[in-house]
């Protein structure tokens, strides 16, 4: 029986954001934007969706008088990501065995 893939994670940009944040403790908006090559508007929307799902913690502060947004994955986000990867592996294994 296949697990359903988490719809929050099963989209290109949101998955890229989560994959990036799973390997670092925290990263700022510019770093995520440069790493994903996404537009600022689209990135903001997707970060907000991940935040609403409880997968990300978003903090807004100031650095050298400029606003800085930093994102950090939550433990709920880590669990969701792990479940997503496990479900993916199941799909890949089955299609590989065909």
């Amino acid at each position: 029986m296949f697990k359903d893939l988490d719809p929050i994670l099963h989209s290109q940009l949101r998955l890229a954001i989560m994959s990036l944040l799973i390997s670092v403790r925290e990263a700022d908006f510019i770093f995520i934007k440069e790493s994903t090559n996404a537009t600022a508007g689209n990135l903001s929307v997707q970060i907000q969706k991940l935040k609403d799902a409880g997968y990300l913690e978003v903090a807004k502060k100031f650095k050298d008088n400029y606003p800085q947004t930093t994102c950090k994955i939550t433990s709920k986000g880590v669990n969701a990501f792990e479940s997503y990867v496990k479900a993916l592996q199941q799909y890949v294994n089955v299609s590989g065995n065909k």
Partner: peptide
Amino acid sequence: MENKPALTPEESLHIISSM
């Protein structure tokens, strides 16, 4: 990167490893 919703499992794994 756009927000393409219909990803294959292989594409998802590729995104994860490349990021």
